[in-house]
Design a protein around this nucleic acid. Sequence first.
DNA 1: TAGATACCTTATAG
DNA 2: ACTATAAGGTATC
Length: 289
Amino acid sequence: MEGSIPLTSLPGGLDLRATLESGQSYVWERADGAMYTGADDAWYHTVHDGEVIAVRQREDELVWQATTDADDRLHDRLRLDDDLPAIRATAPDDDVVDTAFDRYWGLRVVADPFFPTLISFICSTQMRVERIYQMQTALREAYGTPIEFRDRTHHAFPTPAALAAATEAELRDLGLGYRAPYVLETARQVDAGTVTRADIDGRPYETAREALTGYAGVGQKVADCVLLFSLSYLEAIPLDTWMQTLLADYYPECDRETYADTSRALRATLGGAYAGYVQTYLFHHLRTR
DNA sequence: TAGATACCTTATAG
DNA sequence: ACTATAAGGTATC
């Protein structure tokens, strides 16, 4: 099937490229492989619940081709119903925030599937964005179910059971390094139901963050990434090295002794309920300037 | 509880 | 060519 979604009526429109190449999502693959260097209207594809979805932005429409009707899925996954002007209105009106929003206006926080997001951010520690993509691609090709679509083989992200059946040596061979045992253990925890979505979803933000740290290789920062980019906790602000730089340069008064306290202070400064949205714009802006 | 350190691997700077 | 350093941190002591 194929179709298109008009973007003119969306509050704030869409910048698909900024959305998918800002280091928040590792489940979409750019078809031409030209991340950061190619054109703005590339095709991106993913496998979602066994269905292949390909999307491309053409001026004021989002064009898609898929093995199923992808309209609703794209609205959900790309948060097309978020009111960007309303979200921006909650952010501080200062130079760095204004510049970030102006530069990538139309960037939307994604709502990626849980397990791939969990694994990709366990892999993200001490790693550059470009290499995180490589690791996820390697995992998909090694353990994911292949699906043919339009003369191309796509790979679903591995199921928890499939990853749990891997060996640490295999994962190290894919370049995961010290993350290999974390990925393996977390896959086993998910597969066995040791920590479940019920322990996380719907809980208050900081409770959910604490629950996520029950997975191997998941500390507070990675937990915040999963909450923000998969579980729609839009107030979550992953405090990484870029946010530490931001803190020092622009909001030194928010610096505290612990992660939790700094998080609360910066969250308040960035506007509260949508602080994670603001963080995503800031992260992409800081990392690409 | 706070602080220090090891950890895989790769790319980049010097 | 080589070495040091850093990359969206976490676990452990």
